[in-house]
Design a protein around this nucleic acid. Structure first.
Length: 349
DNA sequence: GAAGCGTGGTG
DNA sequence: TCACCAAGCTT
């Protein structure tokens, strides 16, 4: 596409954004942005981290609870690890929560409590990679950064009918995104592409008749919009098995343990159990273990079938693993979803 | 560079 | 039902 045509397409996209921008709690509307209002970098950062590989619908409630409880980066930096992990429970990719805290503390300790404004400094912080650094710089500071996420890749692949499959196409798509990013309003431009990708130029069944870029789009002209970007087939997910032991003491306390910092569900609370790779383990204490059900759960790269065993234990029980957590202190909502499912499988409160 | 890392929605 | 997918980062 000719340069002036690309520029015209960018203008059309911003015009569409000015009337169709989604209203989101971490955003400044394009109208307010034009008046010089800028979003709070803390809220932009928090939203961007939560939105990594996660839908807006899933993030909304978490964002509201986090910002209510910890309204600024200093408050979050001062929070206890377990409180933040519990608040993140259910959102997934728990390394994000650990990095979130590490980042907040680094901003307080090394940056005087102010988020850096430059992309390079942002990207040096925990949990902030190339995308998130560019997004914060562009959205919070209107820096002329090229913001490339899955939406941008998809829109670029279609707009320019780039046939190369992902992820090999990434460098070329970054180049196209750089060509497409305007010098004026780069923050609004980035958010406009996100909105377009989320509402019109969707992965499946894009609604080209509603698209402000339709007349510029090479894929749409060729009817290829649903085929792009091409992706290589993913390997099949193996099925793994495991067991969890859910013990309830006479006083109502639950036997839980904190999982190792690294790895799956790292740092989260969970029920003592076996590994999920065929490795064996002994129950955390001797008891009359009863089969309570089976839970099926799918992670990013495998399916899991979890056998849930349950036992009532005497008040003086001394487990080999984990700690009893009082009935008042235990909330299923503090557990990752898999562990909530296991708790639900035993069928009482 | 590839693998590991969650979950809920959807077609 | 089930495979695919979402505003990626880390190792």
């Amino acid at each position: 596409m000719r340069d002036d045509r690309v520029m015209t397409a960018g203008v059309a996209l911003l015009a569409w954004y000015d009337r169709a921008a989604r209203v989101l709690p971490w955003r400044v509307s394009p109208g307010d942005r034009a008046l010089g209002v800028r979003p709070d970098p803390y809220r932009v950062w928090l939203s961007e981290v939560m939105l990594q590989q996660t839908t807006v619908a899933a993030v909304q409630g978490y964002f509201h609870r986090f910002t209510t409880r910890w309204p600024d980066v200093a408050a979050l930096a001062a929070a206890a690890d377990a409180e933040v992990m519990a608040e993140w429970a259910g959102l997934g990719y728990y390394a994000r929560a650990r990095n979130l805290l590490a980042c907040a503390r680094a901003v307080v300790a090394d940056h005087g409590g102010q988020f850096p404004s430059r992309r390079e400094a942002l990207q040096a912080l925990p949990g902030i990679g190339p995308y998130t650094a560019a997004a914060i710089a562009a959205i919070a500071h209107d820096a002329a950064e090229v913001v490339v996420d899955g939406n941008v890749e998809r829109v670029m692949a279609r707009l320019f009918a780039h046939p190369e499959p992902m992820p090999a196409a990434k460098p070329a798509l970054i180049g196209l995104a750089a060509q497409f990013t305007p010098r004026l309003r780069p923050g609004d431009h980035a958010q406009a592409v996100m909105d377009l990708g989320a509402t019109i130029c969707t992965p499946r069944n894009p609604t080209c008749p509603d698209c402000p870029l339709a007349e510029f789009c090479a894929a749409c002209a060729m009817g290829l919009q649903a085929e792009l970007p091409r992706k290589l087939a993913k390997p099949e997910k193996p099925i793994r098995q495991g067991v969890v032991w859910i013990a309830r003491r006479a006083d109502g306390a639950w036997l839980l343990e904190q999982r190792p910092e690294r790895g799956l569900l790292g740092g989260m609370l969970g029920w003592p159990g076996t590994g999920w790779d065929g490795s064996d383990a002994a129950p955390p204490l001797d008891a009359d273990w009863q089969a309570a059900g089976e839970v099926r759960h799918t992670f990013t790269h495998f399916h899991l079938t979890l056998t849930v065993l349950h036992a009532e234990t005497p008040q003086n029980a001394t487990p080999d693993r984990g700690c009893f957590l009082g009935a008042n202190a235990f909330r299923p909502a503090d557990l990752p979803t898999l562990m909530r499912k296991a708790h639900a499988a035993i069928g009482h409160s």
